[in-house]
Design a protein around this nucleic acid. Structure first.
Lengths: 151, 151
DNA sequence: GAATATTAATTCGACATCGAACCATCGGTC
DNA sequence: GACCGATGGTTCGATGTCGAATTAATATTC
């Protein structure tokens, strides 16, 4: 939390904001996902949630949505398949693609779990007013989509 | 980015803010740490930075500062020791503690690297004004230190 | 239509990460 | 001074994560 670094004011301001940003992201995630049962990990929850709200997706789409590597998704889906929450199916039109779908068990599992996580996140954000949440979202959006024009 | 979930307004607002928070944290970290040479990972950089700015620390202190598990720190320090950037030393007063210190090589390495990362983070945050950075930090701080009073 | 390039997924090795079990050390108490 | 609980590190198994190499399938080009 303390800054033990001598830089310009711009650097100190940016580093302080960055540290707080990271701490907030980590601690909100840790607290709000404490409701996850031990049967699923955070990464697996992310896949199930994407499938619930967007329908069946192929592995590349999942990797894109979740900002993970392809090799990573292969493993996560492997583990979800082992526990019977999703299934793989080759796309007959283009046999390179493999579509991942929720099983009946997976659908009822994530349908029941997601509202609990949503409520938990909402509870965490309740320390901010609606306007503050909007401001936070706006600032984060500017940061996240920064064109990052290299000088 | 789109919300495919029907909840209360409070839930939708919170989830939107949460998604933007996570995306910002991930993308700023990814872009600003792209300057890291391939010899060190992000986790290793975190340890080196802590040692540079706070001096020698024992493993438990490192785990606390970086919010990582003890077992995790053992491995990260193992790898840093292999590449000769840090050393372990048992504390003679209390032989349970193991103090981790930068080697000469490690000190010059991180001393040279850190300013580059700091400049990169500053560059990423330059899309926000100083006041906006302060606001963002303040909102994140409220979120991160939320007492999370369970209802 | 056969050679080539592109794309999707998997595999693999290295590192990260957690949590639980384990081991060593210290600080009591009796 | 021997038991006993607490504390700090390590080990271990499972999962996650990346990036590079590989494989399978499709698209393109001549």
């Amino acid at each position: 939390m303390e800054m033990h670094y001598q830089g310009t004011k711009a650097e100190i301001d940016a580093l302080n904001a960055y540290i707080k940003l990271m701490r907030a992201a980590e601690s909100v995630t840790a607290r709000s996902h404490a409701v996850l049962p031990k049967e699923v990990t955070l990464a697996q929850f992310g896949v199930l949630e994407a499938l619930l709200h967007r329908g069946p997706l192929c592995l590349g789409e999942l990797a894109g949505k979740l900002l993970k590597s392809g090799g990573n998704l292969t493993l996560i889906v492997d583990n979800l398949e082992k526990t019977g929450l999703v299934t793989r199916a080759r796309n007959p039109d283009d046999r390179r693609f493999i579509t991942v779908s929720l099983t009946k068990k997976g659908h009822s599992f994530i349908s029941e779990l997601f509202p609990k996580v949503a409520a938990s996140i909402t509870h965490e954000f309740a320390t901010l007013s609606s306007a503050e949440q909007f401001t936070l979202g706006w600032l984060c959006r500017k940061l996240g989509t920064s064109p990052s024009a290299k000088p």
